[in-house]
Simulated scan of single mutants.
Amino acid sequence: MALFSRRKKSVDQPDVEPQASVDTPVEHAGTPEAPAESVPAVGISVQAFRGVGAEAGPEMALPSEEEGAATDAPVAARPRSGASTDLPAEPAAQPVPRLPLAPAAPPEQTHTVDGLVDNVLLRVALAELEEGAGNDQLLGVMRQSLQGHLYLRVHGDAREQISEGKPLSVGVIRDGDRSFMLAYSSGAALQASVQGAEDAAATSAIAQPATSVYQQVITGGFTGIILDSSSAPHRAVFPVELLQKALDQADAEMAVKTLLAAPRDEQTPVRVAEALAKKRSWVAINDGSGGQPVGIAEARTTDGRRFLQIFSHPLEVVALGRKDQPMPFEPEQLAKVLSDHDEIAGVLVDIAGPSIAIEREDLSAVLVLAVDLGDD
């Protein structure tokens, strides 16, 4: 967690004071940022998750080489800069996926206000929203919000409140019995919320992991959360039920997504493989339409090598806009599939981006699980 305390009325040049990472309680009686009439309508409900992340079914087999790929869209949905493999682009005739996609490579760390590092993936996903955005687009924002940090606007000195063991007095919008925590993807979005506010000089900001913020919304009795509240139409409102559903299906540490969104080096594939060996992932199962065999989705490179598609969260499957259904996959199941299919060259993780292709030689942390199963 990083803390940014502002002593000036303007947020153009905030003083930056990083603090140790701690879990911070949130005071429900935070300072309202805006009158009730400015509360946006909740445009998405937990029903948008219907059919996403079903319970694990029977073991699904990969189709044989003769049967062909297990999905009708086995390659990236559009060209991606910095891709880790030579996957070709999907033909232009294919429909554009409904949710915002991202390049394969992680974004460069940037800031729209000096000293405040933006959550670039979330900022870009919000920027694609338009007035009246549908559930599909909002789920895309939710997908990209599950890694990285969010900024909370705090009334008073956040550093002082933490040192004294007090709950943070965070920005809240109230509408009768409803209350929404406010959080921001970037320094610019935070700056927009402070502009013209009477208490601007007494405002500070704190950065916390997005999943930690969502958990605080759930446990704090809030109705939901508003991301970038002053940036309409590039803002999103998520009810608490949706946050609970997303976290129920997520790895608490978001280990894979965090690695994919961070700067990479030659050891990144190994680290991602180690995370896959410890955490449940997801696979995409097709519905058998068009005469295809029911099986796990895979991708093929231009030279014919086969990569199993793996996903860190069911929303990563939904993001592709295909008819595939996400199914939870334990590390031991992944190990068995790879062990039983020597022709599989590796795995392709979170193809909607940021993504990474991991060769079999870097998957030893997963493959050893199949050896252990055999010993049992």
Rank of each mutant, 00 (worst) to 15 (best):
D199V: 06
H111Q: 13
P233D: 05
F307Y: 15
T258G: 13
N135R: 05
G224T: 04
L126N: 13
L315E: 10
M1C: 08
Q325E: 08
D157P: 03
S364D: 15
R305C: 05
H341C: 02
H155D: 15
L87N: 08
I351M: 15
E253G: 10
M254F: 08
A299Q: 04
L259H: 14
S186Q: 10
G43D: 12
Q94E: 12
L122I: 07
L315D: 11
G115C: 05
S179K: 03
K166H: 02
P74G: 10
V272N: 05
A105D: 12
A77Q: 14
Q137R: 15
P32E: 03
V217T: 03
V22R: 13
P18G: 00
E359T: 14
G57F: 13
P97A: 05
A197R: 13
T110Y: 01
F4I: 15
A370I: 03
D350T: 08
A77T: 07
E332S: 11
S229Y: 09
A352I: 11
A133I: 15
S179I: 01
D175Q: 01
F311D: 06
D362W: 04
F49Q: 03
H155P: 03
E67Q: 14
S38L: 11
G171Y: 01
R6M: 09
Q13W: 10
S163Y: 07
E316C: 11
T223E: 08
Q333C: 02
P100T: 08
P97G: 04
G53W: 00
A54D: 14
L242Q: 00
M181N: 07
P314G: 09
L139C: 10
G51F: 03
A192R: 15
P95K: 01
E130L: 08
A357M: 10
I225C: 00
D375P: 01
S45F: 00
V75A: 06
R264Y: 01
I206W: 02
E131K: 14
